[in-house]
Design a protein around this nucleic acid. Structure first.
Lengths: 296, 296
DNA sequence: ATCATATTGAAACATATGTTGCAATCCTCG
DNA sequence: CGAGGATTGCAACATATGTTTCAATATGAT
C-alpha cells in the first residue's frame, strides 16, 4: 500500500470513525510531512488526542498499528511522493481521482521530479559551463523550432534585455537559417530539439558545426542527434503523463542560462537593462500604473 | 543550525575524520532523505559501520548525538528544504556557495515551491474550470506579448496539434490584434500578462471584453489589470532570485491546459493528431530515424 | 429507566532505540 | 621493535516509543 491509497482509504472510512479517531485522521491528512517525522506521542499531542487513539486509528484502517502508518508515509517521502506538495495526496484522495484533477496533479508531480533532476550536480555543472560559453561568445544564435520554439524565443528575449548579442533564428518567409551565414568560431549557436527531432533544426546545426561554429545543444538524450554535434550539452527530461512531451525543463534551462549570463555580464547587463527601461518609458510600452498592493 | 549548514560542516570536517566516521559522513551526505526517516541502526547497517559510529560522527561535529542530526534533517524535510532535490544541499555545501552554482540552485528551489503552489486545490480547480471553458469554446484566441509570448505561443502550438480552433494573436507588421475582429461570445480569449503589464495586451483584452468575448487571464495577482476583466482567472507566481521574473509557472499552466483540453476533446483530438502525423511524414518534417536506445 | 455496547482516558508493558563503557586492535612515532 | 594514542567492535545500559490492558464514561436501543 502506498501513501496515496492510504489517504484515500482514510477519506472513505472517515464517516465511520468515532470523534476522537476522526481528529487523529484529520491530522494525518492535514500534515502528511509530520506523520513519519514526529513521534506518535507528539502527533497525538498536536492533534489533541490520546497517544492510544493514533494506534486505534491505524487498527480501524485494518493495519497492525500506527507504526505501519508511519512506515508508509516515510516511504512516500523517501520516494519523493510527498514534499513537492504535501496536500496533493489529499487532493487526489478526496477528489476520488477525478479525471482532470488527477491528470493535472500527475503532470505537476512529474515536473517536480524533473526540477529535482536539473538540480543534480551534473546538470548544474553543465549549465554553468554553458553559461560561461554564452558569456564569452561574440554573438549568440538561438534556434528552436516547433515545440522548442518557446524555449529558443524566451532565451533570446532574456538575452536581448541584457545586451545586443543574441540573434533569434526565426523564419518568416522561409528565412530561418539565413542569419547563420555570418556566424564564426567566436560565436555560439544554441539549439533546442527534443523528440521528434525537427529535421531542419538538425540540418542547420550540422551546417554551423561544419563551419566551425561552437554548438550548445539542449536536448533529451546523450545520444540525440544534436548531442553528437555539440560542444556543450544540456540534458532535459521531457517525459509527461500527458499526450504531449513537456518542454518545461527546457524552458527552465533557458531562464537559468539567462540569469547566469546576466550575472556574468555584470555592469554591461545593468547598463542594457537601463536602456531597456528608458525605451519602455519613452514608448509607453507598459502600464505606468504602479502595481496594486498584493492581497493576502 | 539548519541542514545546509550542517552538510557544509560535514564537508569541511571530512578530512579530519577517521575512516569509519568518514563512511558514516558519506552516508549522511548521500542520503539526506534517509537520515530522519530510517533508524540509526538501519542507517549504520547500510553505511557498513557500527551503530556507535553514527553517534561518534555526531560528536565529532560537536553535537550531542546522532539524534540531534536526525532532528536537523527532519526539520529540513518538514520545511521543504530537502525533497525537491536531496542532493542540492550537498551541492551548495561542497561548492561553498560559489556564485553561479548557488544561483542556479536557488532558481530551481524557487520553481519547486511554485510548482507546489500550482498543485494546491484552488489552483487545480481553476485550471480545470478554465480548461472546460476552452473546450467549450468555438475558437480560442491566444495572446501573450513580450515575456508572455512563449506562454501564449506554446499553448497555441499544443492546441493546434489537437484541433484547428486555436488562433495566435501575433503581429508581423503591427497586426497583432486584427484577428480579434471576428471573435464573439462563443469564443474565448486567453491572455497572459505579468508585471510589468504590457499596455497593448490589456488594451486588446479590454476591447474583447467590451465586445462580450469571454476572457481567461493568466496573470500574477488577484488585482492585476487582467484579473478584473477575466471570466476565468489562473494565478501564477513569478518571483525569482534572478533579475528576471520567472515565466515557468505560466508555461506549466499552458502545458496543463493543453493536456486537459486534449483529454476533454476526446476522439477529435486523436483524429487531429493523426492528421498531424500524416502531414509530418509527407513533408519529412522530422527525422525518420528511430530514436537511438537510451544509454544508462 | 436500564442494560448492552462502544468509546475514551490513564497507566502498565514489552521492546527497539540511541548512547556509553570497555577491551581489542590498529597506527604512528621514537 | 615497542610504547602511546587513537580507532574500532561489542555488549550492556537507560530510556523513550508504540502498544495493550482495563476501568470509567458515554451512547443508544428497548
Amino acid at each position: 500500500m502506498d501513501q496515496g491509497e492510504l489517504a484515500e482509504q482514510i477519506v472513505n472510512a472517515f464517516d465511520g470513525m468515532s470523534a476522537q479517531i476522526q481528529s487523529a485522521a484529520r491530522y494525518v491528512l492535514d500534515k502528511p510531512h509530520d506523520v513519519a517525522l514526529l513521534t506518535m506521542r507528539e502527533q497525538a499531542r498536536q492533534a489533541g488526542v490520546q497517544p492510544a487513539t493514533m494506534t486505534r486509528l491505524a487498527q480501524h484502517l485494518g493495519l497492525d498499528g500506527y507504526e505501519t502508518v508511519r512506515e508508509i508515509y516515510a516511504a512516500a517521502i523517501r520516494g519523493g511522493e510527498i514534499g513537492f506538495a504535501g496536500k496533493a495526496g489529499v487532493q487526489v484522495a478526496s477528489q476520488k481521482l477525478k479525471g482532470d484533477h488527477a491528470l493535472a496533479i500527475d503532470i505537476l508531480h512529474s515536473i517536480s521530479g524533473q526540477v529535482a533532476y536539473l538540480a543534480e550536480s551534473r546538470s548544474i555543472d553543465r549549465l554553468v559551463a554553458t553559461a560561461r560559453a554564452l558569456t564569452a561568445a561574440r554573438r549568440v544564435y538561438c534556434l528552436g523550432l516547433r515545440s522548442s520554439h518557446a524555449v529558443a524565443w524566451h532565451l533570446h528575449y532574456i538575452l536581448s534585455l541584457i545586451g545586443e548579442k543574441s540573434i533569434l533564428l526565426h523564419g518568416i518567409g522561409g528565412t530561418e537559417g539565413d542569419a547563420l551565414r555570418s556566424a564564426t568560431k567566436d560565436d555560439v549557436l544554441i539549439a533546442a530539439s527534443v523528440l521528434p527531432y525537427t529535421r531542419f533544426t538538425i540540418e542547420l546545426v550540422e551546417f554551423a558545426a561544419s563551419r566551425g561554429v561552437p554548438v550548445v545543444a539542449v536536448t533529451d538524450s546523450e545520444v540525440a542527434p544534436l548531442a553528437q554535434l555539440a560542444d556543450h550539452l544540456v540534458l532535459v527530461p521531457t517525459g509527461s503523463p500527458s499526450f504531449f512531451h513537456t518542454m518545461t525543463p527546457a524552458f527552465i534551462v533557458s531562464e537559468i542560462l539567462g540569469a547566469l549570463v546576466a550575472g556574468q555580464a555584470g555592469d554591461s547587463a545593468v547598463e542594457a537593462l537601463r536602456r531597456f527601461d528608458e525605451q519602455g518609458v519613452a514608448l509607453n510600452t507598459h502600464l505606468n500604473q504602479r502595481p496594486p498592493r498584493k492581497v493576502l
